[in-house]
Nucleic acid binder design. Structure first.
Lengths: 346, 346
DNA sequence: TTGATATATCGAAGCGCTTCTATAAATTTC
DNA sequence: GAAATTTATAGAAGCGCTTCGATATATCAA
């Protein structure tokens, strides 16, 4: 490139430090045997000359890219509430510590093998992959077949490594909180139940309600399986919930968007929150802090999840070459806890 | 990597096609002279063997990385409303066409040279850089000094290539719309005026009001220079606006977040929108569609801007090696138009 | 004391490409 | 129709690094 000053190479460092290429390389990578004295001299030359290793040369010689891929659905990335974006950010942050670059790839919801294959997969330009959220099974299978190690986030597939939210317990805690406030008719508001996170939240709700008085009958479970959990869906189901035969006094929502949609409708109907209707959300997205009333919700530590995913993947990548055990056999399915954030809506 | 099947190399393709390495390379890159017949044979071998060039080998040999860096402030990426995120997405999308990978780097607001230098810059791991939004001047200077071509988005610096929004005209259009609705007391709600986008919107407002009756005196300009344009700031300035000596009947806000904050306060004060107060925002973020009332605003084509930025940068990168003219001299400062979206709030 | 093992350094091969140079045939120019 | 030019292909150098022996010395166990 005409614009860049010539870059300092390992050769120049070696010359300056009066060492061999391999010695410098070893110092840089912290491998092999180098005496303390020599190491100091080399390090000094590196600093003096401002040497920075070339990623591509390194990559070519070592057969690892030092890239990791982060794949999510377009619709998840573009979502108005940056849930997965924050997870990405957490991963990106941690990648600096682990010396990886994160390449983002978005895939369509109706992923088809071949045509939609992300470039980073096709070109095998990553050492490992993080897949965030529920994605098309075809993608999962393609990544699986590629042999590239991967970690799932907020989703599970077979027993591959994953980071998931402790949805069940979080839901139990939230619903118990509602029951503790004296509510007996607590409804559940959900959407696409095929997403494990949502079905687990429903399970938690059911578990908590099982011992309630009166026990939950399913009458107050409102789900629209064909919709994603958006504000829109929340609004529409709100119509059903608040005009149904048995109107609940509290609603536990599968996520904040749904909760916000419900609140929007309730306020239009002049239903007071939390006096007439208590609402609890899930995720703790930004918008909940600014809604009227402010949303009581379950906080999910998104950045931390991303960080964890990258750490786990990095670990996997370190291990794979050493052991020959198939990595998916190990107990690498982590669950992260949540926190109930009580604000105004319940 | 132990997990990956051996990759097909150019050598194998050459052998299969009975051609030399250079011929295959030329076919792949569309350079030099290759007869049609030979090209067909090579292409066929490539397909048959499933050959995909190694990015790192390519990069090493050609001295270009095929990466482009996308730098923005952490606070801009994490913003609840994904303005810059969508621009990033647009760039990411276009990068597939141009055969680049986009490496994202976030930098702190109080960027300091050296400590905060993004890895992609330090390691010179990109051919070009996109800088989105207002960033610290230190970063700008560091990128400038690096000699790596760059394009600014929604910001300008000297006369370097940039993609900016047509803020002035958009503001004029919005304010004229308000005036056309019969409003005479139209206020401006802004924040950090040092951001050119915001000051230009103010200028547009002032231009439009100049010919209004009565002409604008500055009395209705509400800005808090020390705040970023968030919901919070909008709420706080809302207090001033609606309790001031001269209460406006319409407000043109420098962005949607401010508008939404203002609306939140107004509704708490039982001020009806748009009957008592008309509000117009700017940006057209997701949240505006779901607010009550739905926000009238100026739409900014975010994805398109990202796309344009990447295209422009790619062009620059193609040109630089050919011509010797300094690229920042050329007329590469693009302005993209907007569109007034009339919904309920005005 | 003597193998065996750990420590230290170096040289060279080679990762998979691009690109320069060489060579030759085909085509154009006047 | 000889010289210049364009088209076509191959060979080889080399991009900047990692890593595999090779070699040599120092340390250890018996």
């Amino acid at each position: 490139m005409s614009h860049s000053k010539k870059r300092v190479t390992i050769k120049e460092v070696a010359a300056d430090a009066n060492a061999s290429l391999s010695t410098v390389s070893m110092v840089v990578n912290g491998k092999g045997y180098v005496s303390d004295s020599k190491r100091k001299i080399v390090l000094n030359s590196i600093r003096k000359l401002g040497y920075v290793p070339s990623a591509s040369a390194r990559s070519l010689a070592s057969n690892r890219t030092n890239n990791i891929g982060f794949i999510l659905r377009e619709s998840h990335f573009t979502l108005s509430e940056p849930f997965y974006t924050r997870i990405f950010l957490g991963a990106e942050f941690e990648s600096k510590n682990q010396n990886y670059y994160v390449l983002l790839a978005t895939v369509p919801d109706d992923y088809k093998r071949g045509t939609d294959t992300p470039r980073l997969l096709k070109e095998r330009n990553v050492d490992g992959i993080i897949i965030a959220g529920k994605v098309n099974i075809n993608l999962l299978r393609e990544v699986e077949d590629s042999g590239i190690p991967f970690v799932l986030v907020d989703y599970q597939y077979k027993s591959y490594p994953s980071i998931t939210i402790d949805n069940r317990n979080a839901a139990i805690e939230a619903v118990r909180y509602l029951i503790g406030k004296g509510h007996t008719d607590v409804a559940f508001l959900g959407a696409d139940i095929s997403h494990p996170s949502i079905s687990e939240r429903l399970e938690g709700y059911q578990l908590a309600m099982m011992h309630a008085d009166p026990p939950e009958t399913g009458e107050l479970v409102f789900i629209d399986e064909h919709q994603s959990p958006t504000l829109q869906t929340g609004y529409e189901l709100g119509v059903k919930i608040l005009n149904g035969a048995k109107r609940p006094t509290a609603v536990f929502c599968a996520n904040d968007a749904l909760a916000l949609g419900l609140i929007k409708y309730a306020r239009e109907k002049k239903i007071r929150i939390p006096e007439d209707l208590a609402v609890v959300g899930f995720d703790d997205v930004e918008g909940g802090k600014f809604s009227t009333p402010q949303l009581t919700t379950v906080r999910v530590f998104k950045e931390q999840i991303g960080e964890l995913a990258l750490k786990l993947l990095a670990e996997l990548l370190d291990d794979v070459p050493k052991s020959n055990t198939r990595y998916e056999r190990s107990n690498h399915m982590l669950t992260v806890p949540t926190e109930l954030i009580v604000r105004e809506s319940a």
